[in-house]
Simulated assay, not measured.
Amino acid sequence: MTQTTQSQPGIQMSEAALKHVLALREQQGTDLYLRVGVRQGGCSGMSYMMDFEDPQNVTEHDEVYDYDGFKVVCDRKSLLYLYGLMLDYSNALIGGGFQFTNPNATQTCGCGKSFGA
């Protein structure tokens, strides 16, 4: 298996997002990566997806980005839609949670979890 580790991440994370993901991973109790991708669906045609991934499931078709030892994985097909994405996190009571700022999106849904490109 060959992994590509980029020094300039195609998917960027704010410090708040990284801290929250690390806390969630700690609850899982294992050394997992974060997989970010897209799938068909959602209000605007495509929706974002995020889940933890076992490192053994990472393939040569994935791009791997390193954040001080924490790895973010994205398949190359999703990366076509996500390159330059900024993942942020907010603790706000209204509108809080993960927020996606995608420079490739031509339209976004009001919920911020789906987009069109």
Results as ranks from 00 to 15, higher is better:
Q12R: 09
E15S: 12
S47D: 04
V36P: 05
L18F: 04
S44I: 01
A16T: 06
Q40D: 11
G10M: 00
L24R: 13
Y33G: 08
G37C: 06
G45R: 02
A23P: 02
K19D: 13
Q27L: 05
L34E: 12
V21M: 10
K19E: 15
P9R: 07
A23C: 02
H20W: 08
Q28P: 05
G10N: 03
Q8R: 05
E15K: 11
R35S: 15
G41V: 00
G42A: 09
H20G: 01
Q40G: 01
P9K: 04
Q8F: 01
G41D: 04
H20L: 04
A17F: 01
G42Q: 04
S7A: 12
M13C: 14
K19H: 03
Q12Y: 02
A16S: 15
Q28S: 07
G29H: 04
E15A: 11
Q8S: 02
K19C: 13
K19T: 06
H20C: 07
R39K: 08
G10P: 03
V21H: 06
V21C: 12
D31M: 03
T5I: 15
L22Y: 03
C43L: 10
T5R: 14
G10A: 08
E26I: 05
S14E: 14
T4F: 09
P9S: 06
Y33D: 13
V21W: 12
G29C: 02
L22A: 04
L18M: 01
G42L: 00
Q8M: 05
V21Q: 12
G41P: 03
E26H: 00
L18T: 12
M13A: 06
P9G: 11
I11D: 08
L34Q: 12
A23Y: 02
P9C: 10
Q28I: 02
Q8W: 05
Q40V: 07
D31W: 03
G41R: 06
Y33F: 01
G10R: 02
S7Q: 14
G10E: 02
A16E: 15
L32F: 03
V38S: 06
R39L: 04
Q27A: 14
L32N: 13
L32W: 11
A17T: 06
V38Q: 11
Q27V: 07
I11Y: 12
R25S: 12
Q28L: 10
R25A: 12
L34Y: 09
Y33P: 08
G41L: 11
G45A: 09
G10D: 03
S44G: 02
Q6S: 15
G45Y: 00
P9Q: 11
M13D: 09
V36T: 08
Q12S: 11
E26Y: 01
C43G: 04
G10Y: 06
G37Y: 08
A16F: 10
G10I: 04
G29V: 01
S44N: 14
L18D: 13
V38C: 04
S7H: 10
